[in-house]
Design a protein around this nucleic acid. Sequence first.
DNA 1: AACCTTATCT
DNA 2: AAGATAAGGT
Length: 329
Amino acid sequence: MELTKKWKVCEVFRVLVVDHDSTSLKTVCKMLDLCGYEVVSANCGIDALEMVRDGENDVHLVLTELHLPDMGTYEFLEKLIMDQKTLKLPIVIMSGDDNEIAKLGCLFKGAMLHLVKPLTMKTIRNLWQFAIIKGIITPPPNINPLLFQHKHKKITKITKQLPRHSRPKLIWTQQLHNIFLHTIQAIGIDKAHPKEILQHMNVPGLRIQNISSHLQKFRLSLKRGQNTIDKKKDEESIIEFPKQQGATNSPSPSHLERQCHNRQFGPFIGQPKPLEDQEEGSLNFGSNVKHKKMTTSSQMEHQHQPYMFEVDKGGEVDAIFHTFHDQHY
DNA sequence: AACCTTATCT
DNA sequence: AAGATAAGGT
């Protein structure tokens, strides 16, 4: 009796026991009861099917003898599986057949477990687990599901990390970088995020990590360019335009566009080398790259007009990229 | 959970 | 410097 409460896992856990042998049926029912299960029983397959189908009993698990006189060996099992209503029920078979054929037969027909009679208390008190597996009952609220989730996360993380062989590093050739630049221009510099860029570039084998890393360098170079421009402006004591609202942490679109423009078409936007001259791996983000001034750029440089610093949807950037485009494609 | 950005490492 | 990877954030 003491066992009853100890092993009880949820308020109502109802087991349907099916056995034509009345002694066996009584014994199993008693044991289930001792373990805290609610028990309903049937002594033949037909009755059992009825009980389980009308849904009134709300059975959570079926524990049945394999051999029922009113049905073929696996017939009851098959019928439970066939029926949509009982398909999800966990089914545990018991029988005197202590051999692999019988066990496998049950499993193939859809049972979760085959137990050899006589059953033990230890076994019976564990039966509720099958209902959890099948989703028939949910774990009691005093068991914190997060505990399990956490463990699960760790496991998947580990298995993800294991099969990782080192990849050869990607070299951003001038050509690849050109595609990158065009993509950014097409998407819009403010909306150009790694995934978008990757999809748009459509270069086989290119991974999002490659893009992310490159994008970081790219942005860094823009910032550097902007800083030098700023210094220059300070020296020339040119009127600073008030910073636009909301340009706090990450540079705003207009900010970036301004950088592109003011950098006089620096290395990124500046003259790409012809394909045949390209040196592998010698991409320059820095300011040490020589570049011709283009007519458009020098014109713009002398304008110094406020509107150029506004959110002017990147007319300048467009021009920059177009110039670039004309020369190389 | 996917994706982004920033930091750190080689 | 140029890229990869880790770490941190939404």
